[in-house]
């Protein structure tokens, strides 16, 4: 049982970092949703704020790592001009070409919105600290941005999984 270099980096990019991203998103979303002055005690705030700060920060960092590794390590193998690269194989088959012309084209661009949006969320969470519990409008805005960051990553992750099934990077 072994993985090639390319398979290893594809697994790191898609499954390893993807799983951490998903966990950080779930924790961050729950934390943001419930961080309301009327719901938390002083002790509760002390207990959850560091987790929320770390969760949103980890989500942003993981999103950056994912897009950087995806773009600069995995993507060059995918788009290699050789006839056996995943891109060449997909485009050579009319039944599979749409996986590249729509799926990969969307994934490679939209994915980069995730770290930008997630970083903004993490910054604002850390900037406000405990005051965030009393800033309903800001918290709601962060929730929306957080979900949009996740949506961008979800599109990229879903197409990445499908593409790796249809035309694996070996």
């Amino acid at each position: 049982m072994s993985l090639t270099d390319r398979e290893f980096w594809t697994v790191i990019h898609g499954m390893g970092l993807g799983a951490i991203f998903l966990l950080a998103f779930a924790g961050g979303l729950a934390g943001l949703w419930s961080l309301r002055a009327e719901l938390v005690t002083v002790g509760g705030l002390r207990e959850r704020l560091p987790r929320l700060e770390i969760g949103t920060l980890v989500m942003a960092l993981v999103a950056w790592l994912t897009v950087i590794i995806g773009t600069y390590v995995v993507y060059p193998w995918y788009r290699d001009p050789s006839p056996t690269s995943p891109r060449s194989l997909l485009l050579a088959d009319p039944n599979k070409a749409l996986w590249h012309t729509f799926g990969m084209e969307w994934k490679e661009h939209v994915a980069w919105l995730a770290p930008i949006l997630a970083t903004a969320v993490a910054y604002v969470v850390i900037y406000y600290g405990p005051r965030l519990a009393q800033e309903r409008r800001v918290r709601n805005a962060l929730l929306v941005l957080f979900v949009l960051a996740f949506a961008a990553a979800a599109v990229a992750g879903l197409f990445g999984a499908f593409l790796n099934k249809v035309a694996p990077t070996l």
Binding site: V40, G43, R131, A133, V138
Partner: peptide, 11 residues
């Protein structure tokens, strides 16, 4: 114990 009002911060 209700969270005391934290100092407002400029937005």
């Amino acid at each position: 114990i209700i969270v005391p009002v934290a100092q407002p911060k400029p937005n």
